[in-house]
Design a protein around this nucleic acid. Structure first.
Lengths: 187, 187
DNA sequence: CTTTCTTTTTAGCAAAAGCTAAAAAATCAA
DNA sequence: TTGATTTTTTAGCTTTTGCTAAAAAGAAAG
């Protein structure tokens, strides 16, 4: 789990007592490949951190499956996708490879926030990072062509291209799977 | 300024002492129409809340001006657009109508965060609201046609359509100004 | 190894949206 | 008001991306 604490402290300093407290509440879970381990994200009772592996978030629109987000090592599930009690969506999370997760229940997380000001601050800073990530996604969607979006994806996630089905990447990038195949073969 | 405090407490409860403290740090500014009052957002020293009026955030891409965000009453400037020391962009903020703002300097805001746990929590919750807003924008961009995006915009900002130049709205919605004009005249 | 199932590529055509430029309309200022 | 400036609409053509379906390639299972 220490990798999780390291991740957290890289975002914001934490007191020893906060670290100790967080550790108390963590568990580790191993999930095999191709398993939908969160059926409905907004109803999820836990927050997950990806220690190892690849996951994706997806939902259905017009009968079609849309991949919304890819999670790789050192990412929090639901920081980016809408893992908030506020909004009802139909997101599921699936492992694409064997995955190790660190989890905290939202109940416990709430306790952590309330007891430790520095953990609350950490939560705020994680949210701000998420905002930056999303804003960048909006920019690329709005200003980049399909090819440019793909190129950026390759740059950003060099490991994913050969490990994840093309169709998932296409829907993540907001384009047709056939279009992506063409782009990849440089027209 | 009380409208600002009301806005804040609608998001998260604040202790009386926190409210008192916040009030100490607020100022009010009036800006006339069509004035670029923040030249470079990421270098801005203050956070603004819109008490009255309309503003927009814009930047240049490929020599073209892109409107990124519209701010109306009861919005925080920079909660949505990237008003963080972290990321360098070239966003400016301009009033579209006579506008009244409440402002806090980031210096003071930092103090507020540090002194009051409940203000830090408020900051986290505002960030989460921003995340939801941005995720919705991503969805509409990715899944909606140009017409659908416009229809949603009309629904969401009924006041803006006749008060804001069409070109600004078009770039906000990620489409050509000519395309938007056609859509509006229902092809 | 084959066979089967899944994923990717290719082809051809259709639809959506972009671009340039000019005309029309609306707004602003003297 | 009237002339000037800005904004919006219209027209015609181009480009990009989408869609359906079928072929090819790859991966998985017996």
């Amino acid at each position: 789990m220490n990798i999780f604490i390291e991740y957290l402290t890289s975002i914001s300093k934490l007191s020893n007592s906060a670290i100790h407290y967080i550790n108390e509440y963590l568990s580790v879970e191993k999930i095999p490949k191709k398993q939908v381990f969160v059926q409905e994200l907004s109803a999820s009772k836990k927050l997950y951190f990806i220690k190892k592996g690849i996951v994706r978030a997806f939902f259905y629109n017009d009968g079609k499956e849309i991949t919304d987000w890819f999670g790789i090592e050192n990412m929090i599930i639901g920081a980016t996708v809408r893992n908030f009690p506020i909004k009802n969506t139909r997101h599921s999370i699936e492992t694409l490879e064997d995955t190790e997760l660190v989890s905290v229940s939202f109940n416990d997380l709430e306790k952590l926030y309330q007891k430790h000001h520095d953990i609350e601050r950490l939560g705020r800073l994680i949210a701000i990072n998420t905002i930056l990530f999303l804003q960048h996604k909006i920019d690329t969607q709005q200003l980049f062509s399909a090819k440019e979006r793909y190129d950026e994806f390759v740059y950003k996630y060099p490991n994913l291209i050969n490990r994840v089905p093309l169709g998932y990447i296409a829907s993540y990038l907001g384009m047709n799977q056939v279009t992506l195949s063409r782009i990849r073969n440089q027209y």
